[in-house]
């Protein structure tokens, strides 16, 4: 492997390591095992949510409804847990179901009605938000059973449960994209939808599955978040949308489809989480954090483009 191709392949990992080294020099506390575990735990829901976005981006689409699907699923889980006497597993099932359903609607709007995906999922954003408001009204839900909260706060073999779930999701998505027919078709649809159709792929169906997966993963992220916070309100999901787009793109997933994968998304999310963690450790006012994140997103994407151009 030449230096060039090595740089191309691992440029983002290098950026993450470099960033971590700088932070570690500035504040040795950064490298404490407890802080590192904390970073990964904090990143876990975002990684799971971004994984769904990654799959949609691979088809050349975008899922703007992700934030409000997180909200809706969380609120449905909260509703079942606090307003009904049903078992907590029902809460999980209904939350995941709502995510699948949102994805199904988005998928049909994209694949059958032929709406541009940004518009279809943007509409879904409002619908999900609206439903969430209609279900919850004005008062947040809080105080969930301990068995449910284990998903967000539990520790298994010394490692927090959200990390276990995130690793499982990442592994499944990786294997799914790499080895299953559907996974490989997703790349084909993104690279060239006409060629994919001409070669006999059922593009409609693949697209619908893609958006359903994205909805499902967003709902899963929402469940972990709800369990961790032990409370849910209407604003729980919205902050996840922009990082969900930025982290796959920072990780090398093309916004025009057909290129990328889950590995880059994990690194992209970690870069952003490390950045926020570092700013907290260095006592930089949270008011400036948005500025830094904006700058880093642009620079990371530019670096990616630049390296590609140089090595092409």
């Amino acid at each position: 492997m030449t230096l060039k191709s090595f740089l191309l392949r691992f440029s983002r990992l290098l950026a993450l390591v470099l960033l971590s080294m700088v932070v570690a020099v500035l504040n040795p506390n950064f490298l404490k095992i407890s802080n590192l575990i904390n970073i990964v735990r904090q990143a876990s829901p975002q990684i799971i949510i971004s994984a769904g976005m990654t799959i949609v981006l691979l088809t050349g689409g975008i899922d703007l409804s992700i934030g409000s699907v997180v909200t809706l699923a969380s609120i449905i889980a909260g509703y079942v847990l606090t307003q009904t006497k049903l078992h907590w597993s029902i809460a999980i099932v209904s939350a995941l179901g709502s995510g699948l359903l949102c994805g199904l609607v988005s998928g049909i709007l994209v694949a059958k009605v032929k709406l541009p995906s940004a518009i279809a999922t943007y509409g879904m954003l409002w619908v999900g938000r609206g439903l969430a408001f209609a279900i919850m009204g004005a008062f947040p839900y809080f105080g969930f059973p301990n068995a449910f909260r284990y998903i967000g706060r539990g520790i298994l073999l010394g490692i927090p449960v959200p990390i276990w779930i995130m690793v499982a999701v990442a592994l499944v998505v990786y294997l799914f994209l790499k080895y299953t027919t559907l996974g490989k078709s997703i790349y084909a649809v993104g690279a060239n939808p006409y060629a994919a159709k001409a070669s006999g792929l059922r593009v409609d169906r693949i697209l619908i599955y893609t958006y359903m997966l994205s909805g499902l993963l967003a709902a899963l992220g929402g469940i972990i978040l709800t369990a961790r916070l032990n409370a849910v309100d209407q604003d729980i999901g919205a902050p996840f949308l922009l990082p969900a787009i930025a982290s796959p793109v920072m990780g090398g997933t093309s916004m025009t489809g057909g290129r990328g994968g889950i590995g880059g998304t994990i690194i992209g999310t970690l870069i952003m989480t490390v950045l926020v963690n570092a700013m907290n450790l260095l006592r930089i006012s949270s008011l400036w954090q948005q500025f830094a994140i904006g700058l880093v997103v642009v620079l990371a994407v530019w670096l990616d483009m630049w390296i590609k151009k140089k090595t092409a």
Binding site: I62, L242, I245, A246, V249, M255, L287, W288, Q289, Q290, F291, A292, I293, G294, L295, V297, V298, V301, W302, M305
Partner: peptide
């Protein structure tokens, strides 16, 4: 810099909101 407009304006959003 050849950045997709979506990401570019998102970055500017963060920069402007941060300042």
């Amino acid at each position: 810099m050849d950045i997709p407009s979506f990401i570019a304006t998102l970055g500017t959003q963060g920069i402007a909101a941060g300042i």
